[in-house]
């Protein structure tokens, strides 16, 4: 392939980010297959508007998880919340596929409810926003959390990480971050001039 052919080919490809110098039908098939797999395996879309039914959380746990993930990553002016991004469904899938996660998750959710009952006489879901935040404030900073809530802090670190995994790798999360790689680039320039200027600022 001459350099000119290559530039033209890649120019045409860059215009269609999902494509590459590979048989287009192959990419389409792979993409379609992946999309079907997502729907089939994760069930992230409720069928005909029916609500998603988790297979690895009890109804009570599910209500708690749906609340908790949005405390970790709420909606803001730039993007949606963890539930908007399907994080609870992602967690349900992960608990089914990687069953070693069930113990820490279920014990941790239980710990959160127990702590809420101890402090306020009601589980997390039934607490007020202020009460919920009091418990979260106690466990959300592992380096400074009190020894008496260590189990809760360890749980919350894992829960925050799993929430972040599900959120930032979702369509919403990727767009929010501004990740613009994973596409063919005709010529690698390295660091663009504006980034160079930023890098060399005082």
């Amino acid at each position: 392939m001459s350099d000119m052919d290559r530039r033209e080919l890649l120019a045409s490809l860059v215009a269609i980010p999902a494509a590459l110098a590979i048989p287009q039908d192959g990419v389409d098939r792979a993409t379609a297959h992946a999309h079907e797999a997502v729907l089939a395996e994760a069930g992230t879309v409720g069928q005909q508007g029916r609500p998603y039914v988790p297979t690895n959380f009890t109804p009570d746990e599910w209500r708690l998880v749906r609340l908790l993930v949005d405390y970790v990553i709420p909606r803001d002016t730039r993007s949606g919340s963890a539930t908007d991004a399907g994080v609870p469904q992602f967690m349900d899938f992960i608990l089914g596929e990687y069953r070693s996660n069930q113990t820490w998750m279920k014990e941790g959710l239980g710990w959160v409810n127990a702590e809420c009952r101890r402090r306020f006489g009601a589980g997390f879901v039934s607490c007020t926003d202020v009460q919920r935040r009091e418990v979260l404030d106690a466990i959300a900073y592992p380096k400074t959390a009190a020894a008496t809530v260590r189990a809760g802090a360890e749980f919350f670190t894992r829960f925050r990480n799993l929430t972040a995994s599900g959120f930032w790798s979702s369509r919403i999360g990727v767009a929010d971050l501004g990740y613009i790689g994973n596409r063919p680039v005709s010529e690698w320039v390295g660091t663009p001039p504006e980034v160079l200027r930023w890098l060399e600022r005082g």
């Binding site: 992946a34 999309h35 797999a37 997502v38 992602f90 992960i94 596929e97 596409r183």
Partner: peptide, 16 residues
């Protein structure tokens, strides 16, 4: 494409 996962995005798989 049966083997290679090149150019898949993270949300193309439930495992991410």
């Amino acid at each position: 494409a049966q083997y290679s996962a090149m150019l898949k995005m993270p949300y193309d798989s439930p495992r991410r």
